[in-house]
Design a protein around this nucleic acid. Structure first.
Length: 111
DNA sequence: AAGCTGACCTCGC
DNA sequence: GGCGAGGCCAGCT
């Protein structure tokens, strides 16, 4: 990992806490970590994150667009995984954040 | 070795 | 309200 395993570790912790059928954004995660400007690093952390242990597919951008769809090997993979969990889609590569947004800051003390 | 890029977001004009 | 630049940090060319 990089020189900030602590940051990436927190990212993994947050992503793991994302309930099934819910999604969150990179910015929300970064903000919950105290680094509202480090959204890019969140994405990079997920890049090196083991997708088999971490539900990285539940992380989308602020627009609700599946930016990292090609990172799963194929765009349809991320789509099907989210759709399988009951995540509502506004478009083929865009989810309804208003319906399935899970804010880590709102669930810091809640499990 | 230096510069660009990248699963992004926020601020400024 | 739309466009541009800055910021974050590590990896790659």
């Amino acid at each position: 990992m990089g020189a900030n395993p602590d940051f990436a570790n927190r990212v993994y912790a947050v992503v793991t806490r994302i309930p099934r059928g819910k999604v969150t954004t990179y910015g929300r995660i970064a903000q919950s970590l105290g680094e509202p400007r480090a959204a890019r690093m969140v994405g990079w952390a997920l890049n090196a994150a083991p997708s088999e242990d971490i539900p990285c597919h539940r992380v989308v951008n602020r627009n609700g667009n599946l930016t990292g769809q090609w990172h799963f090997g194929h765009p349809e993979v991320m789509r099907l995984m989210l759709r399988r969990e009951g995540v509502p889609f506004l478009e083929d590569d865009r989810v309804d954040l208003a319906a399935c947004l899970w804010d880590p800051n709102d669930h810091l003390n809640d499990v």
